[in-house]
Design a protein around this nucleic acid. Structure first.
Lengths: 151, 151
DNA sequence: CCGTAAACGTTAGTGCGACTAACACTTAGC
DNA sequence: GCTAAGTGTTAGTCGCACTAACGTTTACGG
């Protein structure tokens, strides 16, 4: 009763969902704290990047690209628009929609965040070799793709 | 201006911190929803498992093993004790401490949760081969170990 | 031996992200 | 033309990670 029954050796330490959780938490902290240092929040980067990569879009479309709920996107766009990184103009072809456009200022901001994000990924993956990083990304991509765009 | 400037191809989709986040979120959902089906919460399993693997412990010690804040552990232990899975007795050798002990009922509960957790890990890693699963666990373990027990 | 620092269990509270519900409005489809 | 669906928005819920503070008890250095 004072000792362990030693039935199954450390399941906890090798539990994938747990490992994923800890790693993700740490990655999130790196990104969130790093972006906070320049006055940006976690979701600014995905939104700006999605705009640059696929061009102007409605908020609903942007919400799918960046995988952020459209209700939460509102606040993010308010912040980005307040800082002039993004323009929100009504779509005259479909008056339900707004068209979100990346401004020049937003492009420069994105460049800045790009550099930071790169740094954070480097810190996060520091203990892995280049091959291991690629393999990790590959495995995670398979996982994420398999479990779908459910949101 | 109506088209994308195509400067850097999909950085978003290959961003490790993002992939980790999505994968972890999905794993968490599987576990949380699955455990909820039998009236357990996310933290019940790690606490019970840590108790079985390393034997009775104080709450502070348990908090380190299970990687849960000792302030949050209080509520978890209340629930586990209410259901008779765990006993909380004052430590007479060190009167600051409580000694948490796994009961027989707790052991049976842990067996049940063990089966469920195994199932969830299987679902989570479904698209990966056995080798890939091992490799993923290995890479994540390196990552988590490197970034330390900071909590 | 005493006084200060540290560890412990506990309570309360903060902040944030994921997610749901409902709304007014506009467009799409039978 | 009527209904169903999509859009932007507001408000609110829930759980988790995390901090602060407290009274109590033990450890430690002078």
């Amino acid at each position: 009763m004072t000792d362990s029954p030693r039935p199954t050796p450390d399941r906890l330490r090798a539990l994938p969902s747990r490992l994923l959780g800890f790693a993700a938490l740490h990655g999130d902290r790196l990104v969130s704290e790093g972006l906070a240092a320049v006055g940006a929040r976690k979701w600014h980067y995905p939104v700006l990047a999605a705009l640059q990569e696929y061009g102007p879009a409605s908020q609903a479309e942007l919400s799918r690209r960046a995988r952020i709920y459209r209700s939460d996107l509102v606040a993010v766009l308010n912040e980005l628009a307040d800082d002039g990184y993004v323009e929100r103009t009504p779509d005259r072809a479909d008056r339900r929609r707004n068209v979100i456009t990346l401004t020049d200022r937003g492009r420069r901001r994105l460049d800045q965040l790009d550099g930071l994000i790169d740094t954070f990924q480097g810190e996060l993956l520091a203990p892995l070799t280049a091959d291991e990083r690629d393999e990790l990304v590959r495995l995670l991509t398979v996982l994420v793709a398999h479990h779908g765009e459910r949101m």
